[in-house]
Design a binder for these strands. Sequence first.
DNA 1: CTACTGTTGCGACTCATTCTCAATAAGGAT
DNA 2: ATCCTTATTGAGAATGAGTCGCAACAGTAG
Lengths: 144, 144
Amino acid sequence: MKSEIEVFRKFIRNKGLRKTPEREQVVRAVFAIHDHFDVDELYALLRRENEKISKATIYRTIPLLLESGLIQEAYFEDGHLHYEHIYGHDHHCHLRCLDCGKVIEFTEETVKDVEGKVGERYDFLVTGHKLEVYGHCGKCRVHK
Amino acid sequence: MKSEIEVFRKFIRNKGLRKTPEREQVVRAVFAIHDHFDVDELYALLRRENEKISKATIYRTIPLLLESGLIQEAYFEDGHLHYEHIYGHDHHCHLRCLDCGKVIEFTEETVKDVEGKVGERYDFLVTGHKLEVYGHCGKCRVHK
DNA sequence: CTACTGTTGCGACTCATTCTCAATAAGGAT
DNA sequence: ATCCTTATTGAGAATGAGTCGCAACAGTAG
């Protein structure tokens, strides 16, 4: 399997865009975070490493990462979007506690079937889905 | 079944909040729109009816509607959240075209089963879910 | 190496949402 | 019905995420 940076380079080339160190640093940072992330976290990580990449460039790189299939939007919280890398990972869904905000990842095959059924029913070429299940975790139920 | 305004009044009373005409106008407006909506649309609708309710009040009412279970977040698009009323409606999921942005609602029972399974597996009291399936609709595939 | 043009960084800008605060008005107590 | 306390409202200022314009810079094709 190709590394994420190879996938990215191929994507960039196919789109006729330019390979730049800034973009590649962003890709590296994204895959260095093994969790959900937002733009500020990427920026902080890069600054910690003394990479001087502007936030604008990060914002400009995000759509490329989305389009190349390396990352996807995970959820909207605290007034901004959070992402996660998906390349090289099994697809997973999120289980969120409405009280403490904890997010658990889980995998569930049956959702794949839904994709197929729905795509056929409405003549869609389905490329993915996002399932978020929410409720109250055990800990938070006890504290009431 | 209780009307949405009754549900809202009960919620307000239980929370020790005050029943105000502004809040009730917002509830009315929300249920007058039979589709997804955002804050601007609510505001425009109320203005058209010559209700002079400030946007701040609408923003302050949204969390109450969410907490009372009358509405839920539907999706994030164009830089802001969109909502939909859910009280009195069967639960449904969204199928979105990544090209033209069209959103189709569909119902799918099997997702309910996922809720149960996952809730048990992680000791969650599951209260709901949000499933968005995306891809490319027939029309947009032709136009390429 | 050169020329062309895409990309970057910076700061200014936009726009959604929240906050501040004075004026208003629920709602319980009298 | 009136008073009093305090939640709520409206208006505009403030915040903060994300975008844009532009001049300097740097890939890449030839």
